[in-house]
């Protein structure tokens, strides 16, 4: 009991301290410095309408590269830790009629919607990560509905690796062509899609990278789901 009281007091003091700190950063004020530059130049420098996507992929592309690595580590780590010689799905109860037929109907459309999200990353909110997550939910639905369904584990790992390499290759091509790593050569050098900003075929290499990220996140999250759902079968 005493421990909880102590915890509450400590946390209140820390909370007060944080609040005092945050008071110096008043909510809702315009303190933009670098952000203003992004907003002013995003259209002509990257061709994307969605500034957040431009920042994520182009201006601060290095973060996203790290970001993709973090997710890759998560899936590899989960794979490494839950690795067993022989693993099977031990789910017993088949999904109810509503779930199975629903999944059979909806799964392809969910995947299509996921693809839509990451292809239109540079125009509409959301990008590679939400798109990939939606695709993963489709696979999760399949796992929940059918007790025997398993994603093709080996191929997913290969796809994951290949797509990851594709991402770095895009960066390296940028290094080769433009002399800078992760340089957007499609927009800066080829000038492809300069005229139709705001429509699908624009935004330099943002859609390319977002498709890569979408596929990667999709395969990785479903790989994690697959690892976690399987049990060790000892015979």
């Amino acid at each position: 009991m005493l421990k909880r009281a102590l915890a509450i007091i400590t946390l209140l003091i820390i909370g007060y301290w944080l609040a005092q700190g945050l008071a110096g950063v008043p909510f809702g004020e315009d303190r933009m410095l670098v952000a203003q530059y992004y907003l002013d130049h995003v259209k002509e420098q990257t061709g994307a309408v969605n500034t957040v996507t431009a920042v994520v992929v182009n201006y601060r592309g290095f973060d996203t590269l790290g970001e993709v690595t973090v997710l890759f580590i998560a899936s590899t780590g989960v794979g490494a830790l839950l690795w067993r010689k022989k693993r099977e799905r031990t789910a017993k109860t088949e999904g109810s009629i509503v779930l199975t037929t629903g999944t059979r109907l909806l799964a392809p459309f969910i995947m299509l919607f996921g693809a839509y999200i990451f292809i239109h990353g540079h125009l509409t909110p959301g990008g590679g990560f939400p798109g990939g997550a939606t695709i993963a939910t489709a696979f999760l639905l399949l796992y929940m509905a059918f007790t025997v369904y398993e994603i093709p584990h080996k191929t997913f790992e290969k796809v994951e690796g290949a797509v990851g390499m594709a991402y770095v290759l895009v960066g390296l091509i940028g290094l080769a062509i433009g002399g800078y790593f992760l340089y957007d050569w499609i927009w800066q050098d080829w000038g492809f899609g300069v005229d139709n900003v705001g429509r699908l075929l624009s935004g330099g290499f943002i859609p390319v990278i977002y498709t890569i990220i979408g596929l990667k996140v999709g395969t990785e999250l479903s790989g994690i789901i697959d690892n976690m759902l399987k049990e060790e079968v000892s015979e």
Partner: peptide
């Protein structure tokens, strides 16, 4: 948490 508390009190 204690270190955070010290930082908080000092702050």
């Amino acid at each position: 948490a204690i270190v955070l508390l010290i930082l908080a009190l000092w702050g």
